[in-house]
């Protein structure tokens, strides 16, 4: 019972803080919108995805959703480091709560932030970019996005728990984030890639989120929805386990 109220407390903090920084929400939306507008229109005039039956802009929309999750949620781990710099983290750690509860509270908070961004993006996508949305596609997209949010937030928190400085955090995340993004098929169809590069796409869990989102929103399928979900569920479970262990070992 007290672990549950503790979980609620941590979630409450994240949401309050999130809602008090409107600039954080706005800036988190600007980047994906720029990609859709500039990259989507610009490259769309060269890259042909005509075989898929959609415009290039629509084609990358699911990829941009995944990108928003990737960048936003990984970055969320930075707040752990900022909390370490003052004694706020100690205040949380000295409370009679399990470390795993603290970790889950953070994952819950970070994922909620991310989900709010995704909802806003999908509304903007439907209104201004002609993305077809149905009850089914929205519901399924949420499932996929939530799995990805939990995984990537856990990854960010793991890095935050291990690293001591914001600079170190930035270094590690940039090593992680760019391969995960560019080799996920977010921006181009992956079936034409050379075999050696294709291997990286196949072992990148983010690819399955992009593929799943593209399947449920646009009806363009690569791996198959069942495999997408399986990979994402395993990815989420593994990342949560790693993150919990990292939090248990975290030094103050």
């Amino acid at each position: 019972m007290s672990e549950l109220t503790g979980l609620y407390a941590l979630w409450y903090r994240e949401l309050k803080v999130f809602s008090r920084e409107p600039s954080r929400i706005v800036s988190s939306l600007i980047q994906p919108l720029m990609w859709l507008l500039i990259y989507g229109t610009g490259l769309g005039s060269i890259v042909s995805v005509s075989s898929t039956g959609t415009s290039y802009q629509s084609f990358i929309f699911p990829g941009i959703l995944a990108m928003t999750v990737l960048f936003g949620s990984l970055f969320f781990g930075l707040y752990v480091i900022l909390d370490k710099r003052v004694d706020f983290l100690k205040e949380v750690l000295v409370a009679p709560l399990n470390r795993s509860t603290i970790f889950f509270g953070k994952v819950l908070g970070g994922s909620t932030d991310g989900l709010i961004q995704i909802v806003l993006l999908m509304i903007l996508g439907a209104l201004f970019f002609g993305i077809p949305l149905s009850f089914y596609s929205v519901f399924m997209s949420f499932l996929i996005v939530i799995l990805l949010l939990v995984s990537i937030t856990s990854l960010g928190l793991t890095i935050g728990a291990i690293m001591e400085s914001p600079e170190g955090f930035g270094l590690i995340t940039s090593f992680v984030i760019f391969p995960l993004f560019f080799l996920s098929g977010a921006l181009f169809p992956v079936d034409k890639l050379p075999a050696w590069l294709h291997v990286f796409v196949v072992i990148n869990p983010v690819s399955y989120a992009v593929d799943g989102l593209r399947t449920v929103i646009l009806g363009i399928s690569g791996f198959g929805l069942a495999l997408d979900f399986m990979v994402l569920i395993v990815f989420a479970v593994v990342m949560v386990l790693i993150g919990t262990a990292a939090f248990k070992r975290m030094k103050i």
Binding site: M1, S2, T5, G6, Y8, A9, L10, Y12, R13, K16, V17, R20, E21, V86, D87, F88, K90, E91, V92, V94, A95, P96, L97
Partner: peptide, 29 residues
């Protein structure tokens, strides 16, 4: 059994004083 007032600031600047208290009360059950 213990309460701790830390050397460095340990409350959340973006929350009000009362909200920081509320957070603490929830965490301590």
């Amino acid at each position: 059994s213990i309460g701790f007032v830390f050397q460095d600031p340990s409350s959340d600047d973006l929350l009000t004083g009362r909200e920081n208290l509320y957070l603490h009360a929830l965490m301590y059950g």
